[in-house]
Amino acid sequence: MSSELLFYKLGMVLFVFAASMVVALYSTYGERKIAAFLQDRIGPNRAGPFGLLQPLADGIKMFMKEEMLPEASSKWLFVLGPCLAMMVALTTGVVIPWAKPIMLDGQPFHFQVSDINIGILYVFGVVSIGVYGIMIGGWASNNKFALLGALRASSQMISYELAMGLSIVALVMTTGTLSVNEIVAQQDAGICNFVYQPLGFLIFLICAFAETNRAPFDLPECESELVGGYHTEYSSMKLGFYLFAEYINMFISSAIISCLYFGGYNFPFAHEMEGILGENMVRVLGFGFLFAKIFGFIFLFMWVRWTLPRFRYDQLMNLGWKVLLPLSILNIVLTGLFLMRNELLDLIIK
């Protein structure tokens, strides 16, 4: 491993880290602003111009708050919980291709930390670890409500992981690869996977809402009517980590949805523009387009949050197991039939 490669990889890691953090930071601001606009209010506008410094003020507030460790909790695990939540949220961005490789001195620079050939599985592996942050945090609090909240949250996440995985199976059947990079590259032709997999997209989107614990699936938190949730006992920046991890998850899942279903960095008329603007310029533009898609989905997340009321717990479980799971299996069957249509036609003709 050459040192040049190491530096390049480190730079990419730093970029993904910084991008996730900054986007998540300003998502908190965006959430408050969008909530305000949807409710005919103004939103935070005191810290800095248009309240742009609000996230920093919130961060400082979080750090300055009193740090509390419950006496009877197991301290190590209590601290480990938010760390895990944050770590898991940040490691998912590794497999996302942020832009087409940019040519510099005839050398391609890949905007992806690692092109694992099982990228989607990697995402799933990391997401499935995300449950631990919640469970450990809830259990280590040594509080019945936190424990119940943790159980509620993790059973929700496990239930929706299944439907999410099956909706991805259908997508993998059409693309024939598990690498996120290749899936995005395949959508270069102009038709994005959303066209082939509308039902799969819908299921994936709903599951993404559930996995990020966003409304209408925010039972784990239940800010408005229950004691809290798994983070009942948390204060200061440890609580901040849990809340912040949610926003990073939102950013990453928006990025994954845009890559898998909406063509990632591809955009219409890209090939035509290459002649005018040059290859590299178009690729930089593609980077911008990917972020535009991501922001669009983040807006969707917030828009839904401030529109739909929360599910009741039995409704949530019914939706996950009795609606989304059968639907995603149906989607797999339909996709299989579609892929094998020529062979089937031959059979019928014979």
Binding site: I118, L121, G125, S128, M135, W139, L151, I158
Partner: peptide
């Protein structure tokens, strides 16, 4: 064998162990 590694994590660490934790916590 990346596939095996990821499936190992998803199935064992991500699913089965969570159920273990469930039972013990409950």
């Amino acid at each position: 064998s990346q596939f095996l590694a990821m499936v190992h994590i998803i199935v064992y660490a991500g699913a089965i162990m969570v159920l273990f934790l469930y039972v013990i916590m409950m």
